[in-house]
Amino acid sequence: MEQVIANGLYLGAQYALIALGLTLIFALMNVLNFAHGQMYVLGGFVTYSIYGQLKLPFVIALICSGVTLAIVGALMEKFLFRTVIRRSKREESTMLLAAATAFFLDAVVLLLFGEKQRGVPKIISGVFVSDRVILPYDRILVGVVAIVMIATFMLFMQYSKPGRAMRALAQDRIAAQLMGVKVERYSMIGFALGAMLAGIVGGLLVSITGVNSGIGGPISIKAFLMVMIGGAGVVGGAIAGGFILGMMESVGLTVLRAYGDITYLVIFALLMIFLSIRPHGLMGKPWG
């Protein structure tokens, strides 16, 4: 049982980090970023190239992943999403754009890095063994880094000036603008930050699960699940959703092993029931 909880926490920490980026972009721009999983994949491949192939330190690779994705995110916001939001009659049009950018990133990753599954050497080797829990050290490290990053992110959103501006923007765009928040600049920063988070998780996880160009879609779906559980556009909700999904996956894989590969089926069914009772997730705003 302790083993299951430890696995759940480890999964939850990385999931929460993925969901944070998605929910941030949604809160600021009202855009459902279909390309989130693809951003994760791109981040993974950047780390793979720098750490796995150029043999530079892992930390540098991770920073490069973050910076690359931040730039990609900022450019996407400035040249694509902003334009479409301004010109379109229906705000759903951004979903088409997001889906198209997901295809685009898929194509770019496929062209640059090929379709093979890629992995990198372990960051640290060895396994932590106690009488009840067995966890490889690199998983512990990744889990801890993820939790530290979540904490940093929350502190940043809570106390820094850009953080405050972004929270104001998420609450009420027009009111924030009237109070002198530079809406366009902070939308761009927010989008870049969300993309950066996706890239960093991708970079972190490439050291454990590896990366291949096809996992973007499934990652996006998982991120949507977490956001639905926690409520769209709420930072706390994304974190809660991430940990809940991680825990459910970990428990489900153990408990339901006898019945075949139905963990996700059960999770989906539970989610349907949950959403019919609480349509906007644990802490989401109604009709986000």
Partner: peptide, 30 residues
């Protein structure tokens, strides 16, 4: 399926329906 999920709006509905496709695939496998 619609009775519960049609109460959702906007992105919530979109995300649930997205998941629905995956559910059906898994169901067919299960």
């Amino acid at each position: 399926i619609g009775l519960p999920i049609l109460r959702l709006r906007g992105v919530y509905f979109a995300m649930v329906t997205l998941v629905l496709t995956e559910v059906t695939r898994l169901l067919a496998l299960a």
